[in-house]
Simulated assay, not measured.
Amino acid sequence: MMASSLTRFDPISRMLSADPFRNIDDFFSTMRMPSLMGAADLSPHIRMDVTESDQAYKVVADLPGIKKDDIKVNIDGNQVSIAAQTASRSDQQSATSLCSERSWGQYYRSFTLPQVVDDTQAQAQFHDGVLELTLPKKTGGSARPLAIQ
């Protein structure tokens, strides 16, 4: 069995963790100026956990505020892609926004698993803003011994 782990690499937060002045972001937010350090995290992203058993991979992804019909999952061999979209906040045109922290727009996440997924047996469930994928590993791949002549 091949052990694997998926790790999200975030060079900005790694760099900021060594910075004694990392609270400078709070200073700029009180002045209503965009922070240079916060600019790296403008696009919404999908947070997820991936676990592995002998038979399958299990993916649990947080997609709060998204409707089931607006989620697309694509499996191509060992490549898995999750895409989702939320509607824009145009319903409050006449209101003045005092604080806006909720993300909207397009979400996309793609990752590679160590083994090919049996897409015919894969299952997806969505409830309470959480997408759960069960991705069975494909058995009996196309590997065969090659005779040397």
Rank of each mutant, 00 (worst) to 15 (best):
S5K: 14
S5W: 08
L6G: 07
L6H: 05
T7W: 12
R8V: 09
D10E: 14
D10F: 00
P11H: 05
S13G: 02
S17A: 12
S17M: 11
A18F: 09
D19T: 00
D19L: 00
P20Q: 01
F21W: 10
N23G: 01
I24H: 11
I24Y: 11
F28Q: 08
T30I: 10
S35P: 03
A39E: 00
A40Y: 11
P44T: 11
M48S: 12
V50Q: 00
S53A: 05
S53N: 08
A56R: 10
A56G: 01
V60G: 02
D62I: 00
L63P: 07
L63M: 11
I66E: 05
I66H: 05
K68S: 03
D70P: 07
D70T: 02
I71E: 01
I71T: 06
K72W: 03
N74V: 07
N74C: 02
N78M: 10
Q79R: 14
S81Y: 02
I82T: 09
A84M: 09
A84Q: 12
A87T: 11
S90K: 11
Q92K: 12
Q93N: 06
A95Y: 14
A95N: 06
T96C: 02
T96Y: 11
T96G: 07
S97R: 05
L98I: 13
R102P: 03
S103V: 09
Q106K: 15
Y107C: 02
Y107H: 07
R109C: 05
S110W: 01
Q115L: 03
Q125N: 15
H127D: 10
G129S: 04
L131R: 14
T134H: 08
T134F: 12
G140D: 15
G141H: 14
S142T: 15
P145S: 03
P145L: 12
